[in-house]
Amino acid sequence: MTAWLFRRHGDAVARYGVLVAILVVVIVLGEALAPATLAPSNLATMTTFGVPLGLMAFGEALVILGGGGAIDLSIGGLYPLAPVIAALLMGHHVAEWLAVVAALGVGVAGGIVNGLIVVGLGIPAIIVTLGTLYGYSGLAEVIANGVNLTSFPASFGEIGQGTVGGIPDQLLFIYLPITVVVWYIASRSLYAYRIRLTGTNPVAAYLSGVNVRSTRFKAYVISGLLAALAGLVESSLIMTASPTAGGVFTVFVVVTIVVLGGVDLFGGEGTVLGIVLATAVLMVLGYSFDLANANSILETGLTGVLLIVAMLGRLGLVRFRTRLRMST
């Protein structure tokens, strides 16, 4: 049976097998802890916890896909910076749409700075984005003067809090469309071909005429934009821009999602479906533990265990598959 599965759907099993198994376990565990975890109304609330992290995970995954040990730590700084800018502008009676565009622009600008230094000067991403993580979150604190900003008009809450037929707007109008766009960018477009080749083998990419630098650069810009969007969605949910939000812990969670989702940290390998599934795993886990009034630290610990299980399981599946191939 397993052998058959492997022969027919080897790729999919190796890629998603462990993840789907974990998702099933988490759902069963969740239902045992707090029945009706997956009732529609719970699902609606649950997704609002997953959307910001899921958005940032897409951007992070694109950066990592580009290879060369790339990573974007600065999302933990753009996540609070964008809503702080938006709140500041709206507080000065700038039109809502303009403030949102400006805040997204800050995300893009942040991504451009990262990209220019990393790709342009060829300095390792982890150092540069560590610096800009400090820089962006520090700026958020300076601009907000350290306090929470609440100068959002009521209509700003629509993105984060509104629902259509019980389905959150942020899921319907933000996460789903962006998932499709990211799927297209990362799997179907010419850019997908470029970034995957760059991630797997930059020299081969260069030789086949791919502009390696510009390909990697674009990933940082997208990541910055998505981090800013994530920050705006969250602040629209809580109608508060907190300069101390995000930070390195948020980055850790995002990287956990990306890794759990099967993105290869050395570049080139990873799928949007994997990231969506991994986002769902952490979301269901967190929500059902909350619903069961469990100590939230258990969730943190369990995430660590899941990460190890997923990595070992995936390595095991790959080995099993290779053995199977050799035996036939």
Partner: peptide, 17 residues
């Protein structure tokens, strides 16, 4: 054979808990 960043990210969550 788990990549260092993943392994230490995992143990980091576990030890904190």
């Amino acid at each position: 054979k788990i990549p260092p960043i993943v392994a230490t990210l995992a143990t980091s969550s576990i030890w904190l808990a």
